[in-house]
């Protein structure tokens, strides 16, 4: 089974000695992220695609929806699934069709952060109780893997969900009409809150905490703490992976730092969405009100 090649002893020793001198290999402070870029498709008919880059890590999220029958035990809820498949495009260590540790952890964390925290209001996806509902599906594609997949994926997922518009529906008695995007403007998904993941990698038994670790830093760390919270400081989940024990008090510093970071993420997503809205809204209200057809 292919796996990420282990870093050499030289690299490992150098990284750790650099960290003990309070420097990271790329010169960032311990609590800084690599430059983040978030972009949406240029095509005005395309919704629900978000492309996130953190340094050399790149994740693309695509949202789609279809009309299905709801689960028998959840008649009033729509269906929301997250699928993340790591393809060899991201790293040669990922294999098609086989789930490895990274993928398992990633999908589990996203599941906990977005789905179980109720970020997406699934009740609003119901069309006719027990008969018809929307199935919203999020597909995550890792295009390049240079560490910190969890944070990048979560950011992409939330941004894509906020960007997505589902087709409008009308219910008349038992009859359901799903309108094409050209007939009626598609509608936004209703989100209850926007949680983001922040990963802390720790070294030297928890004395050194790094945010946004690169692949090499991830390979050399003793463990990680993943905190998911929204901008109000409500924690959705905390996960700690890796054997080494960490002092309880440092969790508090983690959550405080995570809150600051989440606020930055939240602002970034909203700014980019506003920019995208402006691009799509060429002509504004005057264009809407015009009676003339475009030929």
């Amino acid at each position: 089974m292919p796996r990420e090649p282990d870093p050499s002893t030289n690299e490992r020793a150098f990284l750790l000695s650099a960290l003990s001198e309070k420097t990271r290999l790329d010169g960032r402070p311990f609590d800084a992220y690599r430059p983040i870029s978030l972009s949406f498709p240029q095509n005005p008919d395309q919704y629900g695609v978000a492309d996130v880059r953190m340094g050399k890590t790149r994740v693309l999220c695509n949202i789609s929806s279809e009309v299905v029958t709801p689960y028998a035990d959840r008649k009033f809820d729509g269906v929301f699934t997250i699928s993340c498949e790591l393809s060899p495009m991201g790293s040669a260590a990922f294999e098609v069709g086989r789930q490895d540790q990274t993928e398992l952890l990633l999908s589990r964390l996203l599941e906990k952060t977005i789905r179980r925290s109720g970020a997406l209001d699934t009740e609003s996806l119901c069309i006719v109780a027990g008969q018809k509902c929307f199935h919203v599906r999020a597909d995550l594609h890792v295009l390049d893997h240079d560490g910190n997949l969890v944070d990048a994926s979560c950011l992409a997922l939330v941004a894509a969900l906020m960007h997505y518009r589902r087709p409008d529906v009308e219910v008349k008695g038992e009859e359901v009409t799903v309108f094409d995007t050209r007939e009626r403007d598609p509608v936004k998904l209703s989100m209850q809150h926007q949680p983001f993941c922040v990963t802390f990698s720790y070294y030297a038994s928890g004395e050194i905490l790094l945010q946004d670790a690169t692949l090499l830093e991830e390979q050399c760390r003793e463990g990680e703490v993943v905190i998911s919270m929204n901008r109000f400081g409500e924690i959705c989940q905390i996960a700690k992976y890796g054997g080494a024990a960490v002092e309880g008090l440092s969790m508090l510093t983690c959550t405080n730092a995570a809150l600051e970071r989440v606020k930055v993420f939240d602002r970034l997503v909203k700014e980019e969405l506003a920019k995208d809205d402006k691009l799509r809204d060429q002509g504004g209200v005057m264009k809407e009100l015009r009676a003339e057809n475009e030929r």
Binding site: F14, A18, E21, T23, L25, G27
Partner: peptide, 10 residues
């Protein structure tokens, strides 16, 4: 030294 090695490598 860490600093010089990093600087040259970068």
């Amino acid at each position: 030294s860490v600093r010089e090695t990093l600087a040259v490598g970068k």
